[in-house]
Design a protein around this nucleic acid. Structure first.
Lengths: 196, 196
DNA sequence: AACACCGATGTCAGTCACTGTCATCGGTTA
DNA sequence: TAACCGATGACAGTGACTGACATCGGTGTT
């Protein structure tokens, strides 16, 4: 064992999550978080680039299921089907990672603060860009890849929003089902005849 | 005439834009901006909520063309056609507001700084939400409206990106043409058969 | 065993974005 | 003439974030 208790980063993450939930993001200072975690402020900023980032720790790994699904799909798969495959994989990975209640608690914090929503949008944009890159590898033009990446993220967010909705009963449809529904809605939106 | 030179806000905006372009966003302090504009720091924060916001002054008005186009379309127009109409109107409004060179200069600043891209994404998300609201007024379900709003913004951004691309010659296609092209790409992406 | 090195942390001083509060003063209205 | 208002100045304060250097247990080398 080292000079200090190990797992400082995870301790900081938990302390921050709890305090943000209790008092709100603005009313919680980094000093409070580090005090609860038993480290100094400087250590906080060594683990997280800024105060918001602590809420996105470990999320970077969600890019991989997206990208792998695109890369591993059989040759000749259409671009929209690649998007569908990526969504399926990502939804499965997410549900295995965090429970719906955990996701809900975190989302409540994010939704209460514009600065945090901002950061979330940046992460999602990064995801869309990566996905676009993977689609370019599969032959999509830059324009088409970017649009498809945005579409995938938009569908994922729509599904996620419904999945974590406050009034959702405990046993509603899974994230994957919601994503498929949302993707079907996009198909419907784009190909439906002008009449309602 | 008042006690001070009028137009403090516009003076601040210009000073900020110039300094950001010359030295970069991070290397420019609010004190520098206010010094050049001939006001105190406190006045800057009375006109703009934070340092980033000065780059988005007056942009809120671009929501209106979007929303009006949706509201004013003939009854029975399909949701995707409402999106197309909104895009047409917004592109026309934008081209009338700022020149391509102005947009390019501003975009160079935004692209160079993650924090600014973040803010831009928040603005775009707000636009997508407003558009979704307008589409709900036209009978779209919450899910469909949100997806359509995202789609519109995605298409607009894709078109805008090409419009302001560095290597674009002075007389390429207009913003509206690019938006139509991008929307056609979405149609193609969604309805195309699986084969490439 | 002595030594050098490394990596995570502590310590401390400093900058800067942002805020609350009160004073100022020209213009407007009663 | 007086009361009021709106935009600004003045000023002190908080808190996020950074840079530089010290500390010390663990690890590998000789």
């Amino acid at each position: 064992m080292g000079r200090w208790q190990p797992g400082a980063q995870e301790r900081l993450r938990r302390a921050a999550l709890d305090l943000f939930g209790e008092q709100g993001f603005d009313a919680t200072s980094v000093a409070q978080i580090t005090e609860r975690a038993g480290v100094t402020e400087r250590t906080f900023f060594r683990h997280f680039a800024d105060k918001r980032e602590v809420l996105f720790a470990g999320e970077g790994e969600f890019e991989q299921p997206f990208l792998d699904a695109v890369a591993d799909a059989p040759a000749g798969t259409g671009h929209l089907d690649l998007v569908a495959a990526a969504l399926d994989a990502a939804c499965a990975a997410f549900e295995a990672w965090r429970t719906r209640d955990e996701a809900r608690a975190r989302q409540r914090i994010l939704d209460a603060h514009a600065g945090l929503r901002e950061r979330e949008l940046l992460k999602l944009d990064h995801l869309a860009c990566s996905l676009a890159g993977a689609l370019r590898e599969r032959g999509a033009t830059a324009l088409r890849a970017r649009l498809a990446g945005d579409l995938a993220v938009s569908v994922f967010v729509a599904a996620f929003t419904r999945w974590t909705a406050e009034d959702a009963a405990g046993d509603g449809p899974g994230l994957r089902e919601l994503a498929r529904e949302a993707l079907a809605q996009v198909r419907d939106l784009v190909v439906a005849p002008p009449s309602a």
